[in-house]
């Protein structure tokens, strides 16, 4: 019976302290709903989101990890998001090469006022991860 249970992905939403967080607060201000299984994880800037955190999350139970922060050109710290894009590109490249579902990591810019965009992203990613199924890595005891 438990096999039939619907798969509810465990998703971490990495948000920068400015636009990303702002987006989540705008969503809340508008009472926009999104799935409960998406949990925010905040850092100062997308450029401060160490890919090691993402790896840790994927190994320790996350089925997916989304990163959102200020749009290019709009970074609160000038260039953090450009650097984040480089870091995440490298990380996705590693995951891709090793067959570890690089698609479980998404990078999408969300501005402070873009609450709807954040919520849409949460839904879209949730569905995307549901399609991908559980992250095989998270249940491995020998990782």
């Amino acid at each position: 019976m438990s096999d039939e249970k619907e798969f509810i992905p465990n998703i971490v939403y990495g948000l920068c302290a400015w636009c990303g967080t702002g987006g989540s607060e705008t969503a809340a201000a508008h009472h926009l709903k999104y799935p409960e299984n998406i949990k925010p994880f905040r850092v100062m800037c997308t450029g401060a989101l160490d890919p090691v955190y993402i790896l840790r999350a994927l190994i320790e139970g996350a089925d997916g990890f989304i990163v959102s922060g200020c749009h290019p050109g709009d970074c609160h710290y000038d260039s953090g998001n450009y650097r984040a894009r480089r870091r995440i590109a490298a990380l996705k490249s590693i995951l891709n090469t090793l067959g570890l579902d690089s698609d479980r990591v998404w990078l999408r810019w969300v501005g402070h006022g873009e609450g709807q965009r954040l919520v849409d992203t949460a839904f879209e990613f949730n569905e995307h991860i549901k399609k991908l199924g559980p992250n095989p890595l998270k249940s491995r005891r020998d990782s």
């Binding site: 926009l32 709903k33 999104y34 989304i66 290019p72 050109g73 260039s79 450009y82 650097r83 894009r85 480089r86 995440i88 590109a89 996705k92 998404w106 990078l107 999408r108 810019w109 709807q116 965009r117 919520v119 849409d120 992203t121 949460a122 839904f123 879209e124 990613f125 569905e127």
Partner: peptide
């Protein structure tokens, strides 16, 4: 270093509203 215009293929683009979010909200 970085460039302003690069690596777009590593971003998840958003050009069209996602339907289930529209329905739910």
């Amino acid at each position: 270093v970085y460039k302003n215009e690069e690596l777009k293929e590593y971003e998840a683009h958003y050009t069209k509203r996602h339907q289930s979010a529209c329905n739910c909200n």
